[in-house]
């Protein structure tokens, strides 16, 4: 039960910190769940995030799986509610009053100012995931070269084609199965 309360506390706070979308909160989420609470390992965190890319809908729904790891289905539900409800509630009330600020030059300032902060957070998220998913010091250089190449290939394919991103993730899994085992 205390685990559930802890999960709710952590994810409710992350919910309200997720300024600029779910991806911006990724480095903080990894820090809290992996390093502070040891709910999941580095590798598990990266894998859970990746599973989120395979399911439809908002990809941060995958946070529910951290709850599942910690306390089964109850943990899953607790995290889902804690991660989505606070931000939704805030949005519900604030968006009602937002139109009062229509035309205020500060609204533009907030958006312009927050944009680079969010991009910096997203880059930090890439780095936090990549540190285990793309480059694993425990593996030899050939293995790491392959994982880096898989990531680079996905980034390039998505930049030049309009393929469904989930397919590139599936492709990564197939490449992993055939290339990384040897």
């Amino acid at each position: 039960m205390t685990k559930i309360v802890e999960l709710i506390n952590v994810f409710a706070l992350l919910s309200l910190l997720a300024v600029g979308g779910g991806t911006a909160v990724l480095p903080e989420m990894k820090h809290v769940t992996v390093e502070r609470h040891h709910w999941v390992t580095d590798t598990q965190f990266a894998e859970i995030y990746s599973l989120g890319q395979l399911a439809p809908g908002p990809n941060m729904t995958c946070v529910a799986l951290i709850g599942y790891e910690v306390s089964g289905l109850a943990g899953l539900l607790a995290v889902l509610v804690a991660f989505f409800f606070p931000a939704c509630l805030l949005c519900y009330f604030v968006s009602k009053f937002w139109d009062a600020a229509e035309g205020s030059p500060w609204r533009n300032a907030v958006q312009r100012g927050m944009a680079p902060v969010v991009v910096g957070l997203m880059l930090a998220g890439c780095y936090a995931l990549g540190k285990t998913a793309s480059y694993n010091p425990a593996r030899d250089w050939e293995f790491n070269l392959l994982t880096l190449a898989i990531g680079a290939a996905v980034a390039v394919i998505l930049s030049v084609t309009r393929i469904n991103p989930a397919l590139t993730i599936v492709g990564g899994g197939i490449a992993g199965y055939f290339l990384l085992g040897s």
């Binding site: 995931l129 998913a133 898989i150 996905v154 899994g173 992993g176 085992g181």
Partner: peptide, 14 residues
């Protein structure tokens, strides 16, 4: 191995 490949690809997507 599949999960490692999936995670490596997710970094590229992100």
């Amino acid at each position: 191995l599949i999960l490692t490949g999936v995670a490596a690809a997710a970094v590229g997507l992100l």
